[in-house]
């Protein structure tokens, strides 16, 4: 028997996945986190991702086929890790016949900051981009459960961010990306997919490191 198409299901349950830093996954019901798992290590995404999803489903008592929306953190973040979560989200969505929604990973940090520090105050969120650079974005507060991004995401040396915004007036935070927060933002946005499965793409911000072939000299 064929499962019903996603559009005929009540969009109650969501699975959120982010591998832009560590590996974080969560199951949510109408924007409330039922189960969440956060691994901080930055290198074990492809090992962790399968059993992490399996565990949050089990912990929440929700079956894969009940998931109506897969929310994925689209970065920015180190590429190799980021792609593992994006790839997993795509194929989970196909396998569970769910919609796919993308949320900027940095937004989840902003949401958690404003939940802990209510009020409309300027915030600078940064994460490690390696090569002595940071991924960053600025926010002005939260409106209807959605962080309001004012600049970014972008990648720069930390000291160069000053040329774009007045860093001295902004709060900063040590919080990390959390799948539960991504799921909450997506719910606040109405869980509306911004495109088909293939159209939710990562925010890379950098071109691949490769120099076009100069010519033919290979000896000497």
């Amino acid at each position: 028997m064929k499962a019903p198409a996603a559009s005929t299901r009540i969009a109650e349950y969501a699975l959120a996945i982010d591998t832009s830093a560590g590996t974080t996954v969560a199951v949510l019901s109408m924007g409330t986190v039922l189960a969440e798992l956060n691994y901080l290590e930055p290198m074990t995404h492809s090992e962790r991702i399968g059993s992490a999803i399996q565990k949050v489903l089990k912990d929440s008592g929700i079956q894969a086929k009940q998931i109506a929306t897969v929310v994925v953190g689209v970065g920015p973040g180190p590429f190799t890790g980021l792609r593992v979560g994006m790839a997993a989200a795509r194929y989970f969505a196909i396998g569970a016949r769910a919609e796919l929604a993308g949320v900027c990973s940095l937004d989840s940090i902003a949401l958690d900051f404003y939940l802990a520090n209510p009020g409309q105050q300027p915030l600078l969120v940064t994460t490690d981009a390696r090569r002595k650079e940071v991924f960053w974005a600025t926010y002005s507060g939260v409106v209807d459960g959605i962080p309001v991004r004012t600049q970014g995401p972008a990648v720069n040396k930390y000291e160069d961010i000053q040329t774009f915004v007045d860093v001295s007036t902004m709060a900063t935070t040590e919080l990390g990306v959390r799948a539960g927060a991504l799921g909450q933002i997506a719910f606040a946005q109405g869980l509306s997919p911004q495109g088909t499965n293939s159209e939710i793409t990562p925010i890379y911000l950098r071109e691949p490191d490769a120099v076009p072939s100069k010519g033919k000299k290979v000896s000497g």
Binding site: T80, A88, G95
Partner: peptide
């Protein structure tokens, strides 16, 4: 290639969990 393999591995695992 490690980074290339990981795309397939991540996708396959999620597909396996989603479909049981």
């Amino acid at each position: 290639l490690a980074g290339a393999l990981m795309v397939g591995v991540g996708a396959a695992k999620a597909l396996a969990v989603a479909t049981g």
